[in-house]
Write a protein that binds this DNA or RNA. Structure first.
Lengths: 117, 117
DNA sequence: CTAAACAGTGGAGTACGCTCCAAGGTCAAG
DNA sequence: CTTGACCTTGGAGCGTACTCCACTGTTTAG
């Protein structure tokens, strides 16, 4: 798969993918003509990158996951582990949101002390 | 309260607070000697800023809330409205996270296709 | 009176995550 | 053989959110 198709399928720009390659977030083979050639799994990987990113992980952190994954003896197992870890993060994030929601909820209509200056 | 104390209580650096003032995220009176003088409520406000930020709101968005709040005829009512709106945003974000979680959950242990090459 | 601890300003620099060129090579269709 | 869609590279630029610096002024304690 060349970069344009990958970009379309992953919902990213080509420039973004080239940028990700530069920082080691994706790797691609090259065709004889120099064009990048990505495996279909890269689409899944990029979706995961997006997910992790919205969860607050930096590209550097995600890149470290990528390396761990690549070096793992069992990649399916490693991936499951990664996902489980992300799920824990999501749960924590949701708990945070719930707490904030409760806090705001309690303040609604109370003329609470956030009067500014 | 001068900037140093505010910084300590809010867990931010003085530079950050001066930066926030520059972009209109906090406002302060000035003492006769030119030093900034913040009200105690600013601490609460800054905590709110921190929270909103970790939830993914940009400083610009938070700043708009701040202005709406300041310009509102009835500040208590405006604040309630703001909180209710935030709650809706939070609910939406939680639903998003729940979907993400379900997605990851479904992949765990399936030896899903994310082999990286 | 002096030293230390605070405060002020303006402006430069940094890290992150893109985004947009410009100039050029590759390739299939007509 | 040209046109157009695709690809390449390097490098500049941008928005966000700080962070640091140099230099200066103010206040307080000894």
């Amino acid at each position: 798969m060349r970069i344009g198709e990958l970009a379309a399928q992953a919902g990213l720009s080509k420039d973004t993918i080239r940028f990700y390659e530069k920082i080691g977030l994706v790797t691609g083979r090259r065709l004889p003509n120099g064009y990048r050639d990505f495996s279909p799994e890269t689409v899944t990987w990029l979706h995961y990158v997006r997910t992790a990113q919205t969860l607050g992980f930096s590209l550097a952190e995600i890149g470290r996951n990528f390396e761990e994954l690549r070096d793992a003896p069992d990649s399916a197992e490693a991936l499951s582990g990664l996902f489980e870890e992300k799920i824990r993060v999501i749960d924590a994030r949701m708990a945070e949101l719930a707490a904030l929601r409760a806090d705001l909820d309690a303040r609604v209509g109370t003329g609470c002390p956030l009067r500014v200056s």
